[in-house]
């Protein structure tokens, strides 16, 4: 236990920020740090020549994926099976001929720091509005820059499922951003 105390004091904030940056949820981030500590005291494969922080971060990365996998698995199975490349629900965005119903508008990152912050806040709230499983897979891909292959393996989904989910997440997100960020 004294180890945990030291780890928390020396690396706790770092690990928490690392988790929060990827999970975007304070409670989940705290959980991830806790599970990391628990795994760390149970395992004795800490190699003296790597730093404790590197070792703990390695464990944390797995815990983050565990949490995301759980988030996706908790969704009704039928929702996941439903994904099919030929699915037509994307027709909300296009007419029968495949033309945009609403043409995408110019969207620029504002130069000014305050507006930039507003922009990022809107992006963040748009992420929160995505269906949870879409948000989770999209976060793995675009926030954590996880390779597609890894995502499919970790979540046990096909490449087609993955790309349909990522496509939907991106379509939803850009629409939400466009609606809520209408300047210029």
């Amino acid at each position: 236990m004294s180890n945990v105390n030291d780890w928390l004091n020396e690396h706790g904030d770092y690990l928490y920020r690392f988790a929060l940056a990827r999970l975007r949820d304070p409670h989940q981030a705290e959980d991830a740090v806790q599970e990391t500590m628990l795994a760390a005291i149970k395992s004795n494969n800490f190699e003296g020549d790597s730093s404790a922080r590197t070792w703990l971060t390695g464990i944390l990365k797995h815990k983050i994926i565990d949490l995301q996998r759980k988030q996706i698995r908790e969704q009704p199975v039928s929702d996941l099976i439903d994904f099919d490349a030929s699915d037509t629900s994307m027709d909300d965005f296009f007419d029968v001929k495949g033309h945009w119903l609403d043409k995408p508008q110019t969207l620029d990152m504002p130069e000014n720091a305050l507006e930039q912050k507003q922009f990022l806040n809107i992006l963040s709230s748009c992420m929160d509005k995505l269906p949870k499983k879409l948000a989770a897979i999209f976060t793995m891909r675009d926030v954590q820059e996880t390779e597609n292959e890894t995502i499919c393996k970790e979540l046990d989904i096909t490449a087609t499922n993955a790309w349909v989910m990522l496509y939907r997440a991106r379509m939803g997100l850009r629409k939400c951003l466009e609606i809520n960020w209408n300047i210029g």
């Binding site: 920020r17 690392f18 929060l20 940056a21 990827r22 043409k103 995408p104 508008q105 110019t106 969207l107 620029d108 990152m109 922009f119 990022l120 992006l123 963040s124 675009d142 926030v143 954590q144 820059e145 991106r170 997100l173 850009r174 951003l177 466009e178």
Partner: peptide
């Protein structure tokens, strides 16, 4: 424009990540 939007979103998310980390 759509292409630029997706790249913008992707870059913004990465900068959000490093902002939080740092």
């Amino acid at each position: 424009r759509f292409n630029r939007q997706l790249h913008l979103i992707s870059n913004a998310l990465k900068s959000m990540r490093s902002d939080t980390e740092n």
